[in-house]
Design a protein around this nucleic acid. Structure first.
Lengths: 109, 109
DNA sequence: ATTTTATATCGTAATATTGCGATATAAAAT
DNA sequence: ATTTTATATCGCAATATTACGATATAAAAT
C-alpha cells in the first residue's frame, strides 16, 4: 500500500494529524518561531537566516499555508506571512484537550 | 536530496519536530487516545478496535516507543503499553512555550 | 512435547517528503 | 522598454513513510 487509511479514522483525528504533520519539521518550526517573534516574515529573510535554498523555503511556506497555519498577503514585490489566528487557536485547543486528558502516572507498566 | 538537513537547526527544534512527527499520524493519535482513556493498552485490542493489520499496529507502537512517548512492559504473553510520563510532560511543556509565544492578532497581513 | 496465543520483525510495493537547480511570474526601479 | 528584485512552480533524485502478508519468537495452555 503506502498511503494512510484516513477513512478508518475520525475527522478530528485526521485534522489533528494533518496540522501536526505541517508543523513536524525543523525548518517549519524555525519559520513559525521567526513569525511568532516578529509577527510577520518575508520569504527572503528566511532564506538568509535559515540557510536553505529559496525554492525549499517557499515550499515549506506553502505547506504551512495549505494547512491553514499561516496566511500571506502580497506586499509590493514581496509577500508578508503571518499566523492564521483561527487555525492557531484551533490547534492549541485540540492539543490542550489531547494532553490534558492524561491522568498522570498511575500504576501500570 | 531527500533528507532533512537537521544539522542547520537547533537541538530543541530537531527534538520537537521528532516528537511531533511521532504523533502526526491518525493511527498513532488513535492509539494514544486509547491509552489516555484506559491508562494502558495491549496491541491485540488495538488491532480489533482500529481495523489495521497486526503488523501495522505493531509498527506504529514501535515508532511511539522509539520516540519515547510510550513505554511497554512484557506481561505474560502480551505487552502492556502506557504513556512515558517524562516525555509526555516535556512535549506538553515545549508546545506550551511554542503556542504561548503567540502575541495574538496584531495588525499585519 | 506440542499447540495456542500475542507480538515483533522482514521484505516489499505504493506513495509521500525533502531539497534544490532551473525556470516562470510579476511588481518596482531604472 | 528593460532590468532588477522577490517569490512561486516545475522537474527530478534521494530518502522516508505507510501498510501488510509472511514468518519468527517466545510465553502459556494443553
Amino acid at each position: 500500500m503506502g498511503l494512510t487509511r484516513s477513512e478508518i479514522f475520525s475527522d478530528e483525528q485526521n485534522q489533528l494529524s494533518t496540522l501536526l504533520k505541517a508543523i513536524a519539521h525543523p525548518a517549519r518550526i524555525a519559520i513559525l518561531q521567526r513569525i511568532l517573534i516578529s509577527n510577520t516574515c518575508i520569504c527572503g529573510d528566511l532564506v538568509e537566516e535559515l540557510g536553505l535554498a529559496q525554492a525549499t523555503i517557499s515550499q515549506h511556506l506553502k505547506e504551512l499555508k495549505t494547512a491553514g497555519i499561516i496566511q500571506g498577503t502580497i506586499e509590493g514585490v514581496s509577500v508578508c506571512y503571518c499566523i492564521n489566528p483561527k487555525t492557531w487557536k484551533l490547534l492549541e485547543e485540540q492539543l490542550g484537550t489531547f494532553f490534558g486528558s492524561y491522568k498522570g502516572e498511575t500504576t501500570c507498566c
